[in-house]
Design a protein around this nucleic acid. Structure first.
Lengths: 162, 162
DNA sequence: GCTGAAAGTATAAATTC
DNA sequence: GAATTTATACTTTCAGC
């Protein structure tokens, strides 16, 4: 059975995407060597992959501890709001808050899961206050004690899936 | 009150880090223009920031939906294991699983929070089976219904903190 | 897709502040 | 000590095939 992906992306595209999602700064010449292609061919493919939306963005992952972000929290929110427009406003507020790194709408007991980076307890408190001002009252906050794994790498290589 | 950060990083370093954590592919010349410095000066600073561990890595963020990862899950785990060595083995197993994007040790009801990318229900089931084989029985899985925000950007610019 | 050349970029060296 | 300018190597990008 062929997956949807293989209809538009060939094996080389997948290889290129996998190299880039692990190390974005690898040169086209080096990628070309690894996938047995010329460097202009690799360049053309990367541009195509960007234009077609397979690559969202290229970023540097900073070290949170070295930059003073000692307090990573996971905040579980029940909104109790069921008016679509008000939910839009709430979600836009989450997007605008710089300390909110991630926000997901979830199934289960809580409606939203937020990943929040704060420098200290004072910052965390002011963040919780912001949530309260938005009318959010049912909040459960879990502190991140230790990061076991933090990756952006999607398992797109077939070999990786057992 | 001066923060610990400002003793080793000046304002320009922070500006450079902020540009890179948002767009890693910006050229040194363009960064130089934005921070009013020459491009070799920017280059030297970036190398220093890398060597001193402020920049962990540079990566391309791929589009999970376009690559067939329709099933993002958050898995909450209570290990019931209190033997340090066995926990190490468990955590190493999480690190090795390609579908586990993130794993955090948490305070609260559950010991671990995992962010897991699967293509479909079949993959999710085989993932849950892998957890069971590791001796994990208390699992609560929440499905990610919608991504409201997904960012790596730490709020390191003073202007961003209200 | 390739080769090869042009334009742009990163890095090193020498120099100034 | 950290910046700048100048010089060189490397990379990307655009032709022509």
């Amino acid at each position: 059975m062929e997956s949807i992906v293989s209809k538009v992306l060939d094996k080389v595209d997948i290889q290129i995407l996998d190299i880039l999602q692990k190390q974005a700064h690898v040169s086209n010449a080096e990628i070309a060597r690894r996938v047995n292609l010329s460097s202009p061919a690799v360049h053309t493919r990367i541009k195509r992959l960007e234009n077609e939306g397979y690559i969202n963005r290229q970023v540097a992952i900073l070290n949170p501890e070295k930059l003073g972000f000692d307090l990573l929290c996971f905040v579980f929110i029940s909104s109790n709001i069921h008016h679509a427009e008000k939910l839009d406003i709430l979600e836009e507020a989450f997007r605008q808050m710089p300390e909110v790194l991630e926000c997901h709408c979830l199934t289960g007991e809580y409606d939203y899961l937020l990943k929040v980076a704060n420098k200290d307890r004072k910052d965390l408190q002011s963040f919780i206050r912001k949530l309260n001002k938005l009318g959010i009252t049912k909040i459960q906050t879990s502190l991140g004690l230790r990061e076991i794994k933090y990756s952006n790498v999607l398992p797109i290589l077939d070999e990786e899936i057992e």
